[in-house]
Design a protein around this nucleic acid. Structure first.
Lengths: 118, 118
DNA sequence: CAGCCATTTAAGTAACTCCTTAATTAATGA
DNA sequence: TCATTAATTAAGGAGTTACTTAAATGGCTG
């Protein structure tokens, strides 16, 4: 384990990988085993196992052992933390952008030339 | 303008670092220069510069050059994408957990006969 | 018990991250 | 022009991540 990564970093880090987000997406249709979980992915089972370990230590999933099957299921609390962080910042930023938007609207109505870009 | 998987990874990855989240937090009080931005951190300016590059390529900030100062400011669109992903999953998961919660409540009220603990 | 099944651990590797210091670019002002 | 200031690029190192294959673990079953 590397020097105590804070929870938020762990959760964001866990979500930064498309395979792990895929696992969570699949898991949101219901708890399942590692074998089923790894089916849609081309990578090996040990690789999936490692991803699950990351998700577990970030608090995003729970694993319970039933016979030889490890059932994975989702925990929402970590997501809630992340959502709180994001929404906090979005709220602040959106206030600023509303002010900015007013000024830009003024400028636009003055400029009104109409060039499109992507 | 639609979110691709890679964009999402880039944004989550960018948010997975406490220094970068600190930069964003500071930036939410207003646009500023790299020098001011790096003041509260103990790491070198090039390190901050590198973090800014990550944030910029994730679409979380914008940099404009005015004389020898690079002004950094926040973009919210990437955050919106992330928030959408999270809220999508939270909604799904919360549905499942509400169902679970009902069953647990039933169980609790059934148990709640002789024991007083939580 | 022996063998099978689902999954994890172990070991190794290529690529990436985060940081450093030194050199570089670019604008300002005497 | 030359020195100063602001920030970046370059080069490199320590540590981490994401994968691989091979071996091990733990439970089930014939």
């Amino acid at each position: 384990m590397a020097a105590t990564v804070d929870e938020l970093s762990a959760v964001f880090g866990a979500l930064a990988d498309p395979t792990r987000r895929g696992i969570l997406s699949r898991l949101s249709t219901g708890a399942t085993t590692v074998g089923e979980l790894s089916a849609p992915f081309t990578i090996s089972k040990p690789a999936i196992s490692q991803h699950l370990k990351v998700l577990e230590s970030a608090g995003l999933i729970e694993r319970t052992t039933t016979a030889q099957w490890r059932t994975c299921s989702i925990r929402t609390e970590s997501l809630d933390e992340v959502a709180a962080w994001i929404n906090h910042h979005r709220a602040e930023w959106n206030e600023r952008f509303e002010l900015l938007d007013e000024r830009l609207t003024e400028l636009k109505s003055a400029e009104k030339k109409g060039t499109d870009n992507d």
